[in-house]
Each structure stands twice: as structure tokens, then as C-alpha cells.
């Protein structure tokens, strides 16, 4: 058993590399050799994780991944526990259908982070994803529970059809945010393009937002500003084309 497992990208993939075998909790019971033998799909062909990554450490639910992962898809799929730190950018489908644990990305991510598998009705059902860069389209789509934090900007259709859970965006949020939202929350600390199917409710201090932001500051060391913690937020309820019990909380002032 090691303090943590470290995957280092040794051979850059020439095509899309589907590496949905990478999950922190899955590595807790595997030695380095077994981790290297896990199956991946490279350009539509079967391969082994060890063909691309060197593996250091074993039998630990703490995982660190190093290298340029922009062509690597599905990292953290179905992850149910443990801690994963990605030291750079990563491709689409990060934390797909994730159930628990924490993923901390020191970079940007592709589309559909925390989203659902193709054809599935539910995305992530638990856990936390912190993205210190930008997020691609549909971050948090169809999420059922869990927390996603985007320190940079979020792409189009953020939290699309989200059932519940929370997406916090520190930067700007592109068009289509919250479309078909049922019960979840989008906390927008920057500009956000709201769908017309959201209706303004009030401007207030939601008591859970300071709790959440203070948690992010303490747990992840994120640069959360005091004015966001103490600030007032506009509450927009929606999507009224759906259940309508979701919300966009947009920071407006101290």
C-alpha cells in the first residue's frame, strides 16, 4: 500500500484515449501491475493503461495524474470514493456518472464533466468535482446530486437537465445554463446568460451559499472572495418549462 498512486502520461495518445478505468477508489485494491493492465480504448482499438501511463504506487484511493490529458476521455467514470488530483487539463466526460469522492482538476476540462453516460437519464449522483480552469459544454448535465465547481468560465448548456445538485461558476456562464433544470442550483458569481424560462424571485442572502463557499475555501484552498460570501444573490426559479424547482443564484452585490 502506498500513500498514493501516481499516473504519469509517458506516451501521448495520437487519437482519443477512452480511459474510463481510471477512478481513485478502483485503484485502492490494485497493485501497480494490475493498474497498468486495466483496459482503455485508443482510437477505437483496445489497449492497456500501462501502454500510455507509468504507474507509481499501489493500493491507494489517493490518485494523482500528471501530463497533458486533453485527449483522454472518461477519467473518473463511476468513481465512488477516494481523491483524484489531475495536474493539468483533461478531456471530455470527466467524472461521468460519478457516485462519490473528490476530483480536483488543476486545469480545464472538456465537455460533459459530471454528466451522464450516453443514453442514461442521470449524471453524477454524488461526490465533488473542482475545476480550477474552464469547463466545456454541458458541465453537470443531468446530475442527480453532487457538487461541481468551475473557477474559470463554464461553456454552453451548463447543468442542462440537472435533476439536483449544485454547480458553482466563478467566471462567466455561457448561454443555455439551466435549460430543463428540475431541482438543482447554479450559483453564478460572474455573468450568466439565463434562459427565458427562468423567473426572478427575489434578491437575498441564501444562507447555504456562505457555508458552501467557506467550505470550498477551507477544503480546497480556493480563492473565494469575502464579497461573494457576504453578498446578496438574485434568485431566479426555473426551468419553468420543467418542474421549476431549480434555481440560478446570481451574485449581485455585497
Amino acid at each position: 500500500m502506498s500513500d498514493r498512486v501516481v499516473l504519469t502520461l509517458a506516451t501521448a495518445p495520437s487519437h482519443t484515449l477512452v480511459a474510463d478505468c481510471i477512478a481513485a477508489d478502483r485503484f485502492a485494491s490494485l497493485d501497480a501491475r494490475a493498474i497498468g493492465q486495466l483496459p482503455v480504448v485508443h482510437g477505437g482499438r483496445r489497449a492497456r493503461l500501462g501502454d500510455f501511463f507509468t504507474v507509481t504506487g499501489q493500493r491507494s484511493a489517493a490518485l494523482r495524474i500528471e501530463g497533458d490529458l486533453e485527449r483522454v476521455e472518461g477519467v473518473g467514470t463511476g468513481m465512488a470514493g477516494g481523491e483524484m488530483l489531475i495536474a493539468g487539463n483533461v478531456g471530455p466526460d470527466l467524472g461521468l456518472a460519478m457516485e462519490g469522492g473528490r476530483i480536483d482538476v488543476h486545469g480545464s476540462v472538456g465537455e460533459n464533466a459530471g454528466g451522464a453516460r450516453p443514453g442514461a437519464s442521470r449524471g453524477m449522483t454524488g461526490g465533488e468535482i473542482v475545476i480550477r480552469g474552464d469547463a466545456g459544454a454541458q458541465v453537470g448535465a443531468a446530475a442527480r446530486r453532487g457538487l461541481i465547481v468551475v473557477m474559470g468560465n463554464a461553456g454552453p448548456r451548463t447543468a442542462r437537465a440537472m435533476i439536483a445538485g449544485t454547480v458553482v461558476v466563478f467566471g462567466s456562464t455561457a448561454a443555455g445554463a439551466g435549460r430543463f433544470l428540475k431541482r438543482g442550483s447554479i450559483v453564478a458569481l460572474g455573468a450568466i446568460e439565463r434562459p427565458a424560462t427562468f423567473r426572478y424571485a427575489c434578491t437575498y442572502q441564501p444562507p447555504h451559499v456562505p457555508l458552501l463557499l467557506r467550505y470550498l475555501r477551507a477544503r480546497y484552498g480556493l480563492a473565494v472572495l469575502d464579497r461573494h460570501i457576504a453578498g446578496r444573490y438574485e434568485r431566479h426559479s426555473g426551468d419553468l418549462a420543467e418542474l421549476g424547482k431549480g434555481e440560478i443564484l446570481q451574485w449581485v452585490a455585497e
Binding site: G126, G146, R183, L212
Partner: peptide, 9 residues
């Protein structure tokens, strides 16, 4: 029925 829950930490 208008209540909502949040899991934080």
C-alpha cells in the same frame, strides 16, 4: 414541498 436540501462537506 418547497424545501430543498444541499450536501456540503
Amino acid at each position: 414541498g418547497f424545501q430543498a436540501s444541499k450536501v456540503i462537506g
